[in-house]
Design a protein around this nucleic acid. Structure first.
Lengths: 172, 172
DNA sequence: GCAGTTAAGACAGGGTAGTTGACGCATTTA
DNA sequence: TAAATGCGTCAACTACCCTGTCTTAACTGC
């Protein structure tokens, strides 16, 4: 697989390598994501929580005071889907709501202490995996990783990350 | 976010940056994976196929002659789950089965011409996104991306990728 | 200050993709 | 020949997503 087929001309050989490189990136994304999320699932399963709960927990933790609508647009799911997940997290006391100061229709979401503790517990396992990967790859590789990942996501997601999370004004 | 808080000492500042760096990697994985898979979903939805079908199609395409058990271990799902997905793909003529030569209990999976055509169509959209990301980031960044992604996945997945796919002997 | 819009939540009803556990059959292996 | 393996299938279940419709409260524009 490493060498070009002898009968292929230079152009098709380059095309072949490009094709294989791209297909291999599909594999990288699949396996890295699969194993990264599996790492968190183990802890969550004990508590009867799923991936959906973790995603909500993560983004609320990173954006304290997040309004429901913004969380919906990050997760790209419907209100109804989020409703059940958020319901569980509220019932069990992992998440708290507070009315918005400038817009009182909003319910700004924050993690309770229990929510933060849970999130940290799940995070710790993912952290191990990431820290090991970062250390093995080295800082320049990490920067390359960051650049490529940013390139794969939509412009909108890049903008979200650049402003340091969901619209910062909600937290002021 | 770029500069350390003046009141923080060097150690806690480094810890802070490390923590933020790792959490930011969680975001990168979520958004890149979300947007990368969304790209494929659009095409698949037209045909009434889902992500599960795409994953099967992708790995069969990359590993012609793949036995069912190996596909199960790649996807990390149960036989029953795969059964439905594979049933649809067989019915619609995207995938074909052939008995194994050395072990006739096996059903070796391959894509039909229709299956290859469909896979290429879905691939084309993901390819655009990846090629753009790779071109913008540049070759050293791509190498860094590859190294970090490999570090995130399990040893087993790395081994799979290193031998160029599912056990090569099945295809001989 | 009313009309229209938005934020949040809830209803009913539905679908896909995953799970466990048990069993059957053909075939390979010890 | 007995045990193990590869594959398929039945039944029943769960998690997580969907569309469509509706209500309530609060904000916004003329």
């Amino acid at each position: 697989m490493a060498e070009a087929k002898p009968q292929a001309d230079a152009a098709s050989s380059l095309l072949f390598l490009r094709e294989e490189e791209i297909r291999s990136a599909q594999d990288l994304l699949f396996f890295a994501y699969r194993d990264f999320t599996d790492t968190a699932d183990v802890v969550l399963a004990e508590l009867g929580l799923g991936r959906a709960h973790h995603r909500a927990l993560h983004f609320i933790g990173r954006n304290p005071g997040l309004p429901v609508t913004e969380l919906l647009s990050i997760l790209r799911i419907t209100k109804q889907s989020l409703g059940r997940v958020l319901g569980t997290l509220l019932e069990r006391g992992y998440v708290a709501q507070a009315p918005g100061r400038t817009d009182r229709r909003q319910r700004l979401l924050t993690l309770t202490e229990a929510g933060e503790a849970l999130e940290r517990r799940v995070f710790a396992r993912q952290r191990e995996r990431l820290v090991a990967a970062y250390r093995n790859a080295g800082p320049p590789a990490v920067e390359g990783f960051r650049r490529v990942m940013r390139g794969i996501m939509t412009e909108e997601a890049r903008a979200y990350m650049d402003r340091g999370g969901a619209a910062a004004q909600n937290r002021r």
